[in-house]
Design a binder for these strands. Sequence first.
DNA 1: ACTGACATGTAAACAGTTACATGATTGG
DNA 2: CCAATCATGTAACTGTTTACATGTCAGT
Lengths: 186, 186
Amino acid sequence: MALAQAIMTSLLDADLSGSELARDFEKSMGLFWQASHQQIYQELRKLADKGWLNKREVNQSGKPNKILYGMTQAGREALAQWVFGPTRIQPTKDELLLKLYNLSDDNAEHLVGEISQRREEVMQRLYLYEAIRRRHYDDPANLPVRHKGVYLALELGIHQGEQTLAWCDQALALLATVSGDSQPAR
Amino acid sequence: MALAQAIMTSLLDADLSGSELARDFEKSMGLFWQASHQQIYQELRKLADKGWLNKREVNQSGKPNKILYGMTQAGREALAQWVFGPTRIQPTKDELLLKLYNLSDDNAEHLVGEISQRREEVMQRLYLYEAIRRRHYDDPANLPVRHKGVYLALELGIHQGEQTLAWCDQALALLATVSGDSQPAR
DNA sequence: ACTGACATGTAAACAGTTACATGATTGG
DNA sequence: CCAATCATGTAACTGTTTACATGTCAGT
C-alpha cells in the first residue's frame, strides 16, 4: 500500500539498516503501520534500484556487517510529492469484535478473559506512548514543523488507547451480567 | 484471516446471498471487518464445499436469481468452537498519519484539507452508528445475550469515532499555527 | 432492441505472512 | 568447537484488490 513511503519517512532523519528499520517500525511507526523484516528487506532493494535510496556497507565491531540505507535527493522529492496524492486507509480487522458477535452463555467467561488481556496490552502501549509524549513533546506549539505532525499521530494513538481502555471496562461490566453470577435464582 | 467466520456470523440470523452479504458487510460489520464481493463469493463456495453452509437457488420476480446461503449444524458448531481459538488483530494502516510525519510548510495547507475531509467522513459514520444505537440498543442490560456482544462492538465504534472527531479538531488547531497565518512578522 | 441495475463470477496482480536458509561474530 | 545472537535474505503460501466477463430482468 505505502510501505515504500513508510520506510522513506523513517529514513528522513537518519540512515538505517534493514534490521534497525524493522525494530523501529514496532516503536515509532507501529501505531499506524507495521511490517515484517522480510517485507522491509525486499522493499529496500526495490527502492535502491529505483534510485530513491542509496546503500553503503558498514563494518561493525562485534557484529556482522550491516547495510545502511539513506534517502537520495530523488527519494526526498518523490516522498514530498506523494503527500499530495490520494490517501488510503485500511481499517482494522479485529477478531475479538467478531467473537463478540457470537457472544453466548457458553463463551462469555472466555471472552471476559480475552477482553481483560486486550486491556492489559492496550495499557502497556499507552504507557509507552505517554512516556514518549512527556519526554519529547511537552510543548507542542513550539515544535519544529515536521515534529508537530509526528506529535499529532502520537496524540491520536493516546486518545484511542484511552478510549479503548474505557470500552474494555464497559464491556467487562456488561459481560458480568451475562455469565454465572447473573439472575441469582430468586 | 477470519473471513469465513465473519460470513458465518452474518448468516446466524438469516440466510443471505452473496450480494446481500457484500452489502451488509459495509453496514453492520464494516466497523471492524470489510470484504469485497469477489472475496465473499469465493469464500461462500469454499464454505459450502466444506459443509458449513448450504445453498439454495431462489427465483425473484423482477430480478435475476440469487443463491441463498444458510448455516448448517456443522457450521454452527465450527463457529462456536472458533471463538475459543487464538485471536488476531490486524491494526489499521492509515496513510494520513504517515503523511503527517512528513508535515512541512509546503504541504500543511493540503493536509488541513485532508483532515477536514476525514472529519466529515467520521462524522457521517458516527451519525449512522448513533442512529442504530438509539433504534435497537436503548436498554443494553436487558438485551438477549448475543445482542449484548453486538451492542458492545457498536459502542467501541462510537467511542472511537467521537475520539477521532476530537483529534481532528486538535490537529486542525495545531496546523493553523503552521501555515500562512503564523508569526505575523513582528 | 437498448440501457441500466442487479447478481454472480474469473483471472491476474499485489501485498503480506510463514517457514526456512545462510553467514558472521561473540561468549562460553 | 558449540551455542546464541544478529543481520540478511529466499520461497511458498495466503489473503486482498483490481480489472474484467457474463447473464438476467425491467423499463423505455
